[in-house]
């Protein structure tokens, strides 16, 4: 039963990723991206990473996709383009992507997964304690990075105050 669910969620994720690749409508692509992220989230749950699954839904589906949809709407002239877009370099893209995929799959099939020593799966307690002890430096750096990115995004996208005052 678990296997069937795992493969159907993986299938859903891959199919909607292909939909992003082939659709001509940017908004449809953004919605397919939500399905892909939810499918990947299901894979996280099967790997016993429930906290990461909830984080993925909250940040990717709740934050990043909403931001992307805002971006789509802010960069289309109302009523003229209908969110259409095309694609180029199809042959080279297919060659590079299939080449990268076959290289990755070749490497994966060479890995000896049985050599991994099992130390057990970490629960959410271990995650919380780790963030406050061994991983406190990257945790704080991530906080500073988010602040810098927030200020930077506001400065880059905000209206130029001096120019608007002069007009």
């Amino acid at each position: 039963m678990t296997e069937i669910l795992f493969y159907s969620f993986a299938f859903i994720a891959i199919i909607s990723a292909f939909f992003i690749l082939f659709t001509n409508n940017v908004l449809h692509a953004a919605l397919a991206l939500i399905i892909t992220f939810l499918g990947v989230t299901a894979l996280y749950v099967f790997a016993h990473a429930e906290f990461l699954a909830v984080t993925q839904i909250m940040i990717y589906v709740g934050g990043i996709v909403v931001l992307i949809i805002f971006g789509v709407m802010l960069t289309n002239k109302a009523g003229t383009s209908h969110y259409k877009t095309g694609s180029t370099h199809r042959f080279m893209g297919a060659v590079v992507a299939i080449g990268a995929m076959s290289m990755l799959i070749y490497g994966i099939l060479k890995i000896n997964f049985k050599a991994i020593e099992r130390v057990g799966q970490g629960g959410i307690e271990e995650l919380g304690v780790g963030l406050m002890t061994g991983y406190v430096l990257p945790f704080e750096l991530a906080a500073i990075l988010l602040l810098v990115a927030l200020i930077g995004a506001a400065v880059i996208a905000g209206q130029d105050l001096k120019n608007t005052e002069n007009k």
Partner: peptide, 21 residues
Amino acid sequence: VSAVLFAIGLAIVITRRNAVL
């Protein structure tokens, strides 16, 4: 699954010309 998703993402970056895509 991860390798396939990565390859699809790479194909999207190479072929699509819309910056948001």
